[in-house]
Amino acid sequence: MAVVKPGFDGLNGDSARMTVHPRRAREIARTRQDILEAAARAFARNGYQAVTMQEIAREAGYTAASLYSYFSSKEEILTGLAELVLHEIQSVFDQPIPANIPLREKLLFLFERQLELARKRKEIAGLVHMGVVAAGDHCDLHRERVDLLAEFLRDHARPGELGGVPPEDVAMMLNGLGATYFLEWLHREDDVWLKEKFTQALDVILRGLRSPG
């Protein structure tokens, strides 16, 4: 059976609607991901503004003409990177968390998963945390991360663990904290340091939330 993909025909973004067979759809998805990962490496190495579509094509092992069959511009590639990151971040939050542990341990559990993803996607993680991949036309990564974290807190915080502070506010604190430490981690590449500092800061926040006003 064919798969109907509205708004994207697998070769360029101009067609409003086209039928793509499943095998071809998988090939297109793999090729697009190869190009996105190559672009992330090139952007991280030389900077977004300096990189050309021809350089991305060389990094990915394609001709420039082939590259334009999948992405029409650097801006479209940047949006694709943002969508890839968002999809993988969502998958981290979708994984089950043990229910019978305190919020602190749940957040550290989530932190470990995010660190694993950052290791896997280091070039893209660098672009995200340095602000290169930010808000596309339909994808605000910062807002999405805060929303995912707020939902996580609503689902997993026990009564009193947030001290009456709205989950959205705590999510913004934790998101800002995490972004700051991950940015430093990109330079240090020291997982032990990152976990120690994040745990220390998390304890300060949680103690403050539990303290009477």
Rank of each mutant, 00 (worst) to 15 (best):
Ala2Glu: 13
Val3Met: 10
Val4Tyr: 06
Phe8Gly: 01
Phe8Lys: 02
Gly10Phe: 09
Leu11Trp: 14
Leu11Ile: 14
Thr19Cys: 03
Val20Met: 12
His21Ser: 13
Pro22Met: 04
Arg23Leu: 11
Arg26Tyr: 11
Ile28Val: 13
Asp34Gln: 15
Asp34Thr: 15
Ala38Gly: 03
Ala39Lys: 12
Ala40Cys: 12
Ala40Gly: 09
Ala40Asp: 05
Ala42Leu: 09
Phe43Gln: 07
Gly47Met: 03
Thr52Cys: 05
Thr52His: 02
Met53Val: 12
Arg58Thr: 07
Ala60His: 09
Gly61Cys: 06
Ala64Val: 12
Ala65Val: 07
Tyr68Gly: 09
Tyr68Gln: 11
Ser72Cys: 10
Lys74Asp: 08
Lys74Pro: 08
Thr79Asp: 07
Thr79Gln: 07
Leu81Ala: 02
Ala82Trp: 00
Glu83Gln: 10
Glu83Arg: 10
Glu83Phe: 02
Leu84Asp: 09
Glu88Arg: 14
Gln90Met: 12
Gln90Asn: 13
Ser91Arg: 15
Phe93Glu: 12
Gln95Asp: 08
Gln95Pro: 02
Ile97Glu: 06
Pro98Val: 01
Ile101Gln: 11
Leu108Arg: 05
Leu110Pro: 03
Phe111Cys: 00
Glu112Val: 08
Arg113Phe: 07
Gln114Arg: 11
Gln114Lys: 11
Glu116Tyr: 08
Ala118Phe: 10
Glu123Lys: 12
Leu127His: 03
Leu127Glu: 02
His129Glu: 07
His129Gln: 10
His129Thr: 13
Gly131Ser: 13
Val132Gly: 06
Val133Leu: 05
Val133Cys: 07
Gly136Phe: 01
Gly136Ala: 05
Leu141Asn: 01
Leu141Thr: 03
His142Ala: 03
Asp147Ala: 15
Asp155Asn: 13
Asp155Ala: 15
Leu162Tyr: 02
Gly163Leu: 14
Gly164Val: 06
Pro166Met: 07
Pro167Asn: 10
Pro167Thr: 05
Glu168Met: 09
Val170Trp: 05
Met173Glu: 01
Leu177Arg: 04
Leu177Gly: 01
Tyr181His: 15
His187Gly: 11
Arg188Asn: 07
Asp191Tyr: 07
Leu194Glu: 00
Lys197Asp: 01
Phe198Ser: 09
Gln200Arg: 08
Arg207Asp: 15
